[in-house]
Amino acid sequence: MNIVVCAKQVPNSTQVKTNPQTGTIIREGVESVLNPDDANALEAALALKEASPGSTVTVVTMGPPQADDMLRECLAMGADDAVLLCDRRFAGSDTWATSNALAAGIRKLGQVDVVLAGRQATDGDTAQVGPQLAERLDVPQVTYVMACEPKDGKLLVKRQLEDGYELIEIGTPCLLTAVKELNEPRYMSVRGVYDAYDKDIRVWGLDDIGLAQDRVGLDASPTHVFRSFTPDPKGKGVILEGSPRDVAGALAADLRRRHLI
């Protein structure tokens, strides 16, 4: 099987903090990491490869040159190959445009049986690129995949729902997006780390993937950021007073008014 994993380099988001004076995001000392859901996607790809000897796992990302580090981490975990889609003309792509670039890059790789991606990235939280990529590649999709096993030449996957799951059978080629319940991503191996630095990462620009400029980048993106702002800091909390029954009533009323419960 030829397996492709789509990955994204994201800021280590638990460390994202805003400067209360300027309202901007503090970036100093914030490292970039492999998006957590994408690590689950990669682990699932490696497991599929192990179940089907002779398979290959190729990691594809669109990003700046620094994404090289993340790709080497993926190689050290066991991916065979990595491709970096990198071109200033990709800049500012929204999910619609990003899926165009990824689809063009994946098509250039030739026949692909399974595309795996994380459900969503922690910086944007959109969960849109996976399904949009599936549409571009004209393959069926299952999102929120929490279990996946090969069965009779197809895949049997569990799709997570808010109140349970669906068991779905899907043939190849297909695209799956992974949630963290899918597996426990393996660590990089020492041997893998050594080998990762000897491998060549292919870097493809717009012309390499044969995509027209009006399909990717800021100007091609249907959505634009009109404005961005930091949310108002939380106001000081309130202390509810009175008998237990009174405070319970007041709390419930307020939480319901705010549609929190």
């Binding site: 929204d94 999910t95 619609w96 899926s99 944007g124 939280d125 959109t126 969960a127 849109q128 690129v129 996976g130 399904p131 949009q132 599936a134 549409e135 571009r136 999709q141 999102t143 929120y144 799709r159 997570q160 729902l161 808010e162 993106s221 249907p222 959505t223």
Partner: peptide, 23 residues
Amino acid sequence: ATHVGRDLAPRVAARVGTGLTAD
């Protein structure tokens, strides 16, 4: 923005050729 809406809407947006804002 449910597990169904977030599966369906991006696929529709890609096919229709329009933007989609998540969540």
